[in-house]
Amino acid sequence: MPVVATNGRSPYGGETIFGNVMLTRTVVAVAALALTTLAGCGSSSDATASSGAPAAGSTSTSASSAAPAAALTVRDPWVKAADSGMTAAFATLVNNTGADVTVEAATSPASPMELHTMTMKDGAMVMEPKEGGFVIKAGGSHELSPGGDHLMLMKPSAPIKAGDELSFTLKLTGGGTVDFTAVAKPFAGAQESYAPGHS
């Protein structure tokens, strides 16, 4: 699997929503830009993707090498802070390739994880495991957001405090993985949309 690391300009990096739209248009540009940014910043506290293949240091990969362009970029990841109980992680998943990419599973040292989606049941939106995972269309992007698809932290082992940084790994069909770090934010929006399923 290809490798990319992104680092934006905020403490957590991440490009913009505008950026996403723009970037997904040109695969090569995406990889090039991501790498340039990383080189400029030197550290990657945010979304980093690593390959299931031989440990490819993200900085050492370049768009012009034999390696294919990055498969999946995780933009603007964050987690809803929670003193107790389950919570969720969100991000924009950007597919930089010409083929569909499927996220099959997610893992985190912080909690057992499930991939969730929202569905209408008895007149209410509830969440449930996403059958077949999240499919990100070739050259497309997939929004994980409150009230929509999300990465569920089923049973965090410790309170997740505002400003904590949590690491996650996405498992892709075909064996690749994508690592990223997400910051915890206090958040109270879109609660009713997914709370009922678990209350």
């Binding site: 403490p11 957590y12 929503i17 505008f18 969100f90 505002a162 400003g163 910051v183 958040f187 929006g189």
Partner: peptide, 29 residues
């Protein structure tokens, strides 16, 4: 340590908003 977490969060908001982009988890993008 908590102050560090606070300032990272607030800086991140400021970085995005001053660029004209929503903050992470912005309910009024």
């Amino acid at each position: 340590a908590a102050l560090g977490r606070m300032m990272r969060l607030l800086t991140d908001d400021a970085v995005r908003l001053t660029r004209g982009e929503p903050a992470l988890g912005d309910t009024d993008a």
